[in-house]
Amino acid sequence: MRRNWPLYLVTIGGALALAAIIGTFFVAPITVIPDTEPPILNFAQKIFYFHVPVALTSFIMFAVTAVAGVLVLVKKDKKYDTLGHISAEVAVLYAVLTMITGVLWTRAEWGVWWTWEPRLTTYFILLLLMGGYFMLRSSVEDPNRRARFSAVYGIVAFLDVPISFLSIRLIQSVHPVVFSSKGAAMETNMLVTFLIGMAAMVSFGIGLLVIRFREEVAKEELEYLKNQIGS
């Protein structure tokens, strides 16, 4: 039971995701584009229920990379380096999915595939920074130096997360701001659907992170044992 909890987390995430999909298409109403007469239905808004949870989960994973980086520098333990690059891998998976779903929403909503507005630009930079993280890792052979360099890089790259999050709140942008200090700009059934989707993506992400982490640790131990037997 204790050993299998990440697997249960992934399963719960899958079940919650199914509930969120049902909520998205059968419970949450189709919104209308504001200030349109006659009102124009906004079906593309349905992308929001998974696009935002996936994006926020990517931010959580980037935060794990940065925290693991700090722990590498402070505690100098190899397992934090493993956690750092594994969380970066899951973060990139989620970030790529955020970009794809975002671009599809942009095309449906704004009629263009891409626009250089603050959120899209800062998020794109974040994705490029994470690409750089893996390039850095593959270019340094010494494991200790690789751990140190990527820890520092991961911490610096994380600085783009709050910039990206706050960009549309501080700079005038066409990107919608759904959650502000005034609360959530949506009806209760829409908010509940969104929160279920959020719980689904977070539990799915954490489950994947822990399973992937254990796989990496087991792989390293296996290599060590093989060398021991071989020598």
């Binding site: 992934v10 124009i40 079906f43 779903t101």
Partner: peptide, 28 residues
């Protein structure tokens, strides 16, 4: 026509999202 047009992008977004996540889980 507007809803049908938007539904193509919604379907694409959901399909890509779930195919990618399931593929990652299967490969893991």
């Amino acid at each position: 026509e507007r809803v049908v047009d938007a539904s193509r992008y919604v379907a694409a977004a959901y399909s890509i999202l779930w195919v990618a996540l399931v593929a990652y889980v299967v490969s893991l």
